[in-house]
Design a protein around this nucleic acid. Sequence first.
DNA 1: ACCTGAACACCGTTCAAGT
DNA 2: ACCTGAACACCGTTCAAGT
Lengths: 222, 222
Amino acid sequence: MPQPSAPRRAPGRPPRISREEVIEAARRIVAEEGVDRLTMRRLATEIGSTPMALYHHVRNKEELLVLLLDDYTERTLRRPELPAEPRERIVVAASTIHEALAACPWIVEVLTADDLMSTAALWFVEQIVDGLVVCGLSPERAVQGYRAIWYYTAGEIVVRTSAARRRTGDDRPTYREQVFAALDPGDLPRLAQVADRWAPLTAEDTYRDGLRALVDGLLTPR
Amino acid sequence: MPQPSAPRRAPGRPPRISREEVIEAARRIVAEEGVDRLTMRRLATEIGSTPMALYHHVRNKEELLVLLLDDYTERTLRRPELPAEPRERIVVAASTIHEALAACPWIVEVLTADDLMSTAALWFVEQIVDGLVVCGLSPERAVQGYRAIWYYTAGEIVVRTSAARRRTGDDRPTYREQVFAALDPGDLPRLAQVADRWAPLTAEDTYRDGLRALVDGLLTPR
DNA sequence: ACCTGAACACCGTTCAAGT
DNA sequence: ACCTGAACACCGTTCAAGT
């Protein structure tokens, strides 16, 4: 995270809380109670201060969430040994990002961005872009390839975590279940054919399979 | 949309507002003022009623949003002539869904689901699954292939529309710009190499290119 | 420079009562 | 059956003042 300003020790009231302390408290709240409970007011009481004090350390709530994601990736995304073979390197790099994000469902609130990739994640982006270039893509095509991978990855996370959120604490049939139960086999024969297997099929984790397909497709000359 | 109950005309006070009226008013607000302005209170005043009257016609705000998406797809997603060639049929079907959703950015609030596909969109899903089966995939693999396409599509929409939201009314450098400006070319050479072209590159619409790559990859025997 | 208190302008939803 | 009024339990953020 680029620091917004050097810590000029100058006249004025000495700070009682720091940006780090704010982020740490926010992390604690999110870990123990979920993102929904992370409010400026709740955060203020958590650190024994007032809502407005927070605004001296973060611009607003959105920035707080970005900082939180950055903090999270910084402490969980370790640079692993990657395979030398470039195609496999791409798959492992993307999967590592995916795994880290999948493990923190609150990410969805923040994730929806193309310029929100944290500093810690950039090394993985580098590996993906480089892998694509080594396989013969131009730098421009490689960036576009990375973006396709990012769309796929972000989409998987967003769709899966919000599906999970919807499942909890509700035994009414889902909207999809209602729709699938009323499916017209004459109009939609393929869907009718798999209707009863849809739930288990969509519950399977097929991220890597789809990722491999996408990477293969990106590397197939056309 | 499966109706929750038949319209039993029975004793009791005659209804003054209908579910359709509620949805119509909601559509109007979203179209003219954006999703952010769609609140139960605002909606109530729009139809000249009280917030609580709405809860007799929709379960809660989430259901309202789902109904709104269903309504939207119902009136915009027309079944087009699709190419006979299955691979091309898949691409056109997915692109049609993508185009419809891309044109209504408020979708992001609702979209984040795997079981939220509206009835009107199911025909397109059928075409995609069928296309994949015709190309030789098993029904199970075809469903998984469709899901990969849906992840990619949803991800593109979510990432792009929230990037757009962030751009509006703010001339400060974005977080990404700050990060890219401070990039270490020794550590991340590929990213440093394209750093100055990143913005225009990510602004390009490459949905179809990525989609074709994904479909090609899904259909490549492995 | 940093923090506080009070206020502004809102939310979604529940409850009890009315017609 | 459908609608209303009042209330509950909150939000993020601004402003003016204090230390």
